[in-house]
Design a protein around this nucleic acid. Sequence first.
DNA 1: TAGATTGTTAATCGATTAACAATC
DNA 2: TAGATTGTTAATCGATTAACAATC
Lengths: 217, 217
Amino acid sequence: MAKNDVVSYSLSTIQRLPSYLRALNDLASQNEEYVTTITLGKILNINPMSIKKDLAIISSKEGLPHYGFKISILISDIETILGYDNTKDAVIIGVGHLGQALLSYPGFTNYGVNICLGFDIDSNLIGQTIHGVTIMPLTKLEDLIERLHIHIAIICVPKDAAQEIANRLSKTTIRAIWNWAPINLAVPDNIVLKNEDIASSLAILTSQMEQSMKRNK
Amino acid sequence: MAKNDVVSYSLSTIQRLPSYLRALNDLASQNEEYVTTITLGKILNINPMSIKKDLAIISSKEGLPHYGFKISILISDIETILGYDNTKDAVIIGVGHLGQALLSYPGFTNYGVNICLGFDIDSNLIGQTIHGVTIMPLTKLEDLIERLHIHIAIICVPKDAAQEIANRLSKTTIRAIWNWAPINLAVPDNIVLKNEDIASSLAILTSQMEQSMKRNK
DNA sequence: TAGATTGTTAATCGATTAACAATC
DNA sequence: TAGATTGTTAATCGATTAACAATC
């Protein structure tokens, strides 16, 4: 696919890109130069056909029959799509265990997001710098978001505080909310909401486990 | 659908059940008795048609035209499916910020999972009890899992330690691994692996945000 | 009763998988 | 060269959405 074409990729494809990127970086660090869809499929436990389809869409250069795709090119293509070269600022609200775990996550920036400020009500946290991010008092939430023109917010506050925070965020420049609190938030239509639903993942895991144990019995 | 029928539900349906459960519990606490698929759809931002389909499959009692479904019945049906009455034990490996965040998650048990032990290498943590869960030294991993016959493991160790832990788990009674480390684990076929891929969620969020901002411009 | 919502069947949509000629 | 893997088109599969008669 020609570079600079304006395309939008399907969500299923986008969802897979980060894991491709990880596998490709691993391979690159082992000094591999080319990779086939079959090899990637084995590493990632994905049907190679899907990978073929994805790479056909995202790769700026065709693969070579018999050899596969050039790893360095794929890496730079994926980084471009994920916004590596167009990092977006974000804030995180609630810097308890979960918030701090996210702050320590390696490579948000590799995926196009830079957490530039944290907010909390805990006076022990306010003013501290955690993993390079300064924690501000929650009272300054709207003011700072507006002044810095932030579009992305990550909610890591306790469940009972989450809706209130979402309401406040809705009145600012925030356009996307990543919600880690176990609650169904209500937000206006112009805001994109992604719930990180722990319970949902868990339900899938246990149900798949039961299926698998039935099969192997 | 008649109770006691042995059915397996699609993963898409199972994925939605926890959010239904949350919404239903909220409604119940507001003393609502019945709910329609349309109302649920509004709360959850899901097309009511999907909910109709899901409820048709999971509800033990038909809905009433004009009134909807009895909330108390739906709650108990979902809890049954998610294993509320058949709780499975799990262990968590790595009790740093992320591990502690998960331990503080309200209502694992509501979704059929009981974290009964934690493991870590940090001697400051070992012996402690966090949110009711005792932290054991990593050296006892295999021994305790085997003796307690645990099937589910949650990996919250740093990325460089994760594969090694997965290897050790693979030789025990563990049958399902929920991996929170940002790495593509390799596990044997008989183990169900669910990666909680933070980068993947993030990629979806930012891409949806950009789509939405393009539309509303 | 009238109207809203159900259950259910059919239509649509999109994603995954299969097939195969082209080619390094 | 022969064989493996690509690009691409077609087939399959499953999930979502639409339609509508039945009914509280």
